[in-house]
Amino acid sequence: MGSVVRATLKKTNSSVCVFQRSNGFVARFFSTEAEQPPQHSTPPFLRTDNSGLTYARLTGVHKHALKTDIISFLEGCNLTLEDVKMEYTRGGFNPLAMMLQFPTYSAYDNALRVIGRKGRLYRLDRIDRSHWDTVIPYDGRTILIQGLPRNAQYADIEQIVSDYDHDSSSLNMFLRTGEGNEPVKMATVLFRSRTQAMNVFIAKNGTYCLNNRISIHVLQ
């Protein structure tokens, strides 16, 4: 009988536990209280969404730096030529910074680590999308011609670039304040490809327009 009683008590206790778990489930199911969300160990203001585009401004860039130089330096950050734009001063097209568009926040965070690992040659600051949108993308297809004589005409510019595939309607000539507040004449021309713009730079930089020696820069 002792073994029968023990078996009966064991079966009864097991049934009670099941009833308690089941009853507890039913009570939670019909509860009118709002279920509490799971607690996170990281404060909300420190949480970061790792998806979506992230924009940044890279300063300390050399004036002759190319997009490809920055992409190579930030290897592994998934940047393309379309993700990099040079920010210039409005007055004389002097380089200020590189604007970068990262595919994710993780890629931006990786860029910070790369800069730190390579000796902090640059400074990278996160910016809003609006800052990226306001910078004109020259995309390596526009050249800037400096040192033009005051009497230079559109025909003189056309003579410089006539052997290269360019958009004649894009030719723009303007005056900017130079050293000693003296006005200097410059011009920009858009080409059909980066290769054409680079070919003009190689062939025509340091040549002459009328009696003035000109310099040519490829705008990034």
Rank of each mutant, 00 (worst) to 15 (best):
M1Q: 00
M1Y: 00
G2D: 11
G2P: 03
V4Y: 09
R6T: 13
K10P: 00
K11G: 13
K11F: 00
S15M: 11
V16L: 15
Q20D: 15
R21G: 11
G24A: 06
F29K: 09
F29Y: 11
S31D: 15
T32H: 12
T32G: 09
Q36T: 10
P38V: 12
Q39A: 10
S41N: 09
S41I: 11
P44E: 14
R47K: 12
D49H: 10
S51R: 14
S51C: 02
G52A: 08
Y55E: 06
Y55G: 01
L58C: 05
V61M: 02
V61S: 01
H64M: 09
L66I: 06
D69W: 06
G76V: 01
L79I: 03
E82R: 09
D83H: 03
D83K: 02
E87Q: 10
E87C: 03
E87P: 02
Y88W: 06
R90I: 08
F93A: 04
N94K: 14
A97F: 01
A97V: 04
M98A: 08
Y105P: 01
A107C: 09
Y108L: 10
Y108A: 02
Y108Q: 02
A111S: 09
R113N: 11
I115G: 03
R117N: 10
Y122W: 10
R123W: 04
D125V: 06
I127D: 02
S130G: 04
D133S: 13
T134V: 11
Y138L: 15
Y138H: 15
I143V: 15
L144M: 14
G147Y: 07
L148I: 06
L148W: 06
P149D: 08
P149T: 13
P149G: 12
N151C: 05
N151L: 03
Q153W: 05
Q153D: 07
A155L: 06
Q159H: 15
I160C: 04
I160H: 00
V161N: 01
Y164P: 05
S170G: 04
F174G: 06
L175Q: 12
L175F: 14
R176F: 08
G178K: 05
G178S: 06
N181S: 15
P183N: 08
V184T: 13
A187V: 09
V189D: 02
V189I: 15
V189R: 04
L190E: 14
F191L: 07
T195S: 12
M198L: 11
V200H: 07
A203S: 11
Y208I: 05
C209Q: 11
L210E: 05
R213Y: 01
I214N: 00
S215F: 00
V218S: 01
Q220W: 00
